[in-house]
Design a protein around this nucleic acid. Structure first.
Lengths: 327, 327
DNA sequence: ATGAAAGCGCTAACAG
DNA sequence: CTGTTAGCGCTTTCAT
């Protein structure tokens, strides 16, 4: 009933356990004939190496720990990209969710107990000092949050440029008064606000920032405030797609037409934003590049090469149907 | 630089490793004095037991593997609930994401390699025979999908009742012609369709089912079809909240007013549906109960008690702002 | 190319 | 109550 062990395979193939180990790691040191025989025996027994034992015995676990917010769609997209990137580089991923009832320190701790070689934190909310402390024991990489903490590597999108893209897109459509609804203290919010301000001023217009947040509810609240006392703007850029969704949802319950009366731009290009119905004009983060660079950075740290940090990935604008020239 | 080991703690505390082990598992067999001394030594060294080694040595790993769709908000809610339930029962969770680029068999396999004691699959899409095969090696619990596969336990919401609740709510508001936009072949779709049909017929009205799906895009597509040739209905029940969101989004771009012209009911009560802006009337699955029962079932299987299966959890209706009496 | 033997860091009988 | 002794299943020198 219990699973086949390496010993079983070795016996069936008539070789030593060491050989079986070599074959299954496809390390050099076994003849093709032996290799085939071992593999055949393994297959017959339905053998699969025990991952726990493997990790224990190995000098390097090649296990990368990832914390993510189980409720953030963008994190879902990133996790998927990380799986591919990690696999391509010969690493394994251990996932640990952050949720309202499961705070970040707890999620991190569980990864540490698994002896992950490095920590990949998606939009971490931990303090810089807490992050630095973690970085003393193993590489720590923050994706999306631009922390300045000793020893912590950062891989992020150039959010200043991203906001600029959004603004420039609107400017090119003819908009001259544009509002930014920000992300509060969410990682990345400062940069996106700054990018907006810079681009607006550079064009010679006035910046208007309204406080917002990162959830659909935050976007909806912002829309209510907006509708209550409509500012004289023809376009809005929001912190992210989630907020944009909430915003749009509420606006559509008003007489305002999107995009005729108001253009709206999101951020992240999450799968939902892309879906045909929303058709949200948004700034795309390059998840593939973020993931690849993250794994590269982790690998560099783990092999002693000093990585370049922060790694800044350029975003792109994805024009869809929520933006148009002002009426 | 490397982490402190049990040996280190033992040395510092002046005891044997076995004692340290006993203390850290808080197993009986150590005096309070020793316990305190060991704990103090451990704390000083920042010792944390190595989870891998722990799993390897133990007869029971108390590790439960969970597969979930990283893109499904409802799965996020469930995962969170599972963490709590598992912890309360002394189990640990290993997460494995299913995504477009990471099919279910792969996700499952990785859990198996970690020698999880049981498999918890959220809305599995695997064939009944594949599930049965898995169940031969360890307990398999399907949450949400009512599979009839030998050895596979099911914990699910009573979806027939859920759909009935939705219909009855609409009937009580005075609606007499109600459309159901279904979930295609998504787990649970059949039950929700059936519940709708039964409730409608029981009330003496005619059932209308339009094909749909489980994503926002599916809901939006359904809305387009709907608007193209508006059927003579005053209310719509959808397969889930995601589809309802897409549907609402598209409907709001038409002259139709929600809920004045059309009432809409979702399903799942995901965090997003609940958020103030959407205010979606929906059928709530009791994630806490689902999670608790799942862990209970797993525990029963693992300890030899034959569990009751399927476990069917009653849903509840959450009336919000997308339903009202017909005009 | 192959095998023997010594860990990896912990748990679990068992003896004292 | 405490310590000794084997493993758990794999990796990894080091001989042969």
């Amino acid at each position: 009933m219990s699973r086949a062990t390496m010993e079983d395979v070795a016996r069936l193939a008539g070789v030593s356990r060491a050989l079986v180990s070599i074959v299954y790691r496809d390390a050099p040191g076994a003849s093709d004939a032996t290799r085939a025989r071992v593999l055949a025996a393994g297959k017959e027994l339905g053998y699969r190496p025990d991952h726990r034992a493997r990790l224990l015995g190995r000098t390097r676990t090649r296990l990368l720990g990832v914390t993510f917010d189980v409720r953030a769609p963008f994190h879902g997209d990133l996790v998927e990209a990380l799986y591919s990137a990690a696999e391509a580089a010969g690493y394994d991923l251990a996932l640990s969710a952050v949720a309202p009832s499961r705070a970040e320190p707890r999620a991190v701790q569980s990864l540490l107990d698994y002896r992950c070689e490095a920590l990949i934190l998606l939009g971490p909310q931990l303090s810089p000092s807490a992050l630095s402390a973690l970085a003393e024991s193993q590489p720590v990489i923050s994706i999306g949050r631009n922390v300045r903490a000793a020893g912590v590597d950062v891989v992020r999108t150039d959010d200043v440029a991203g906001s600029r893209l959004a603004v420039e897109h609107l400017l090119s459509l003819g908009h001259t008064s544009i509002l930014h609804i920000d992300g509060g203290k969410t990682p990345g919010a400062t940069e996106r606000r700054t990018g907006y301000r810079k681009a607006i001023r550079h064009a010679g217009f006035e910046a208007h920032v309204q406080p917002g947040g990162r959830t659909e509810a935050d976007g909806a609240d912002a829309a209510k405030t907006f509708l209550n006392e409509p500012p004289p703007v023809t376009a809005v850029t929001l912190f992210n797609d989630r907020a944009a969704m909430g915003f749009l949802d509420t606006i559509r319950q008003s007489p305002l037409e999107i995009p005729a009366d108001l253009s709206v731009v999101g951020y992240d290009n999450t799968a939902i934003a892309a879906s045909s119905h929303l058709n949200l004009t948004t700034v795309a983060q390059n998840t593939t590049a973020l993931a690849t660079q993250t794994i590269t950075t982790a690998h560099a740290r783990l092999t002693g090469t000093p990585p370049t940090s922060p790694v800044v990935i350029p975003p792109t604008l994805v024009p869809r149907c929520t933006t148009a020239p002002p009426r």
